[in-house]
């Protein structure tokens, strides 16, 4: 297999709080191949967004640190690379789309200004060329009447249109990896469908890899080739999308799927995972899902389980579930 585009190895992120350093993300390892589409799913506090930000080292300086781990991209470790190199990579090789299209655009600049900024910065285009390119990009993200819309200010655009503009900015330099952090969460369901469709089309047209972060298993199922499930700062399951939804192996993944209300089939009482999501600084011995797990055994309360392969590319962090195979 060819070398992966990005490779996360034991990435650990800590934040400073009133009570010292808190580990938000603990030993995350996975690869993203060229043209791969990885979905990262988890609830609040799972560390999914923190993981994404570490790919661009966008955490606030001084209040965050990386005690160990590497993010390898193009022969460099992004966690230790000089800020200048990172600035070149951000927006050009790795681009990002955020959840809130309202606050991601500067209200006093036109759409054209904001798209050209990236182009002029990374590609050194002159004003006129950048403008022409901006209109092309708006066309590419299916904004009707692009030549006119390009001079609008963000407040004239709907939420869905703004997210399209954000995507246009992100793909302006044809990045090799697009990180989309809950790109449709703030949008209505019909607009969400439009944006997901657009992302799918762009991904094929531009041949880029996508890392999609979402709390919504439905969005992940319809978009990703491979899914990484995170819980309380750790990867608990990593599998191809079909395998994960056909036969989830981690009790947390199972519980999550069972607690989702469905649109088809019989109407029954929902399964609810008991307890609550732990705080990042809460000390939990062994498996962090242990206290809420229906299948917890004695071993789960003592030893931190490892992420082990049980079948092909299906990896699970669960001692009882990996014991049978002993890990492959």
């Amino acid at each position: 297999m060819a070398a992966p585009l990005v490779s996360l190895d034991d990435v650990t992120v800590q934040f400073r709080t009133d009570r010292g350093w808190t580990t938000a993300v603990d030993g995350i390892s996975f690869d993203i191949a060229e043209r791969d589409c990885v979905g990262v799913v988890g609830e609040s506090g799972s560390g999914k967004s923190v993981t994404a930000l570490s790919l661009l080292r966008l955490h606030a300086r001084g209040t965050s640190r990386f005690p160990r781990g590497q993010v390898r991209f193009g022969g460099q470790d992004l966690l230790t690379a000089p800020e200048r190199d990172l600035r070149r990579i951000r927006g050009r090789d790795i681009a990002m789309v955020f959840q809130d299209p309202m606050s991601s655009l500067n209200p006093v600049l036109t759409v054209c200004d904001q798209i050209s900024e990236t182009l002029r910065l990374h590609q050194g285009l002159d004003r006129a060329t950048a403008r022409r390119r901006a209109i092309e990009l708006l066309d590419l993200v299916r904004i009707p009447d692009a030549a006119r819309r390009v001079d609008d200010y963000p407040h004239r655009l709907s939420g869905g249109m703004r997210q399209r503009v954000m995507i246009a900015i992100a793909i302006a330099c044809r990045p090799r990896l697009l990180i989309a952090d809950e790109p449709t969460t703030a949008l209505d369901v019909t607009i969400q469908a439009q944006i997901l469709e657009l992302l799918r089309e762009l991904r094929t047209e531009l041949g880029m890899a996508v890392m999609l972060i979402s709390h919504d298993l439905g969005v992940i199922a319809e978009f990703a080739d491979r899914v990484i499930v995170m819980y309380a700062g750790r990867v608990v399951e990593d599998a191809p999308v079909d395998a994960l939804f056909r036969s989830p192996r981690h009790p947390y993944t199972e519980g999550l799927m069972a607690s989702m209300p469905a649109l088809e089939g019989g109407i029954t009482r929902l399964y609810a995972i008991p307890g609550r999501i732990p705080d990042p600084d809460e000390a939990i011995a062994g498996c962090r899902f242990g206290p809420r797990c229906r299948h917890a055994e004695a071993i789960c309360r003592v030893a931190v389980p490892e992420l082990l392969a049980i079948e092909g590319r299906h990896r699970v962090r669960c001692a009882p579930r990996t014991r049978a195979t002993g890990g492959l």
Binding site: V189, T190, Q194, G218, A221, D242
Partner: peptide
């Protein structure tokens, strides 16, 4: 119908119905 079709399902194999265009 459009609203129901637009909801993503936790079923990777689902044939996706066409997406309704436009905005509110």
């Amino acid at each position: 119908r459009a609203l129901l079709d637009a909801v993503p399902r936790p079923d990777p194999g689902r044939a996706r119905p066409p997406v309704v265009g436009g905005e509110v």
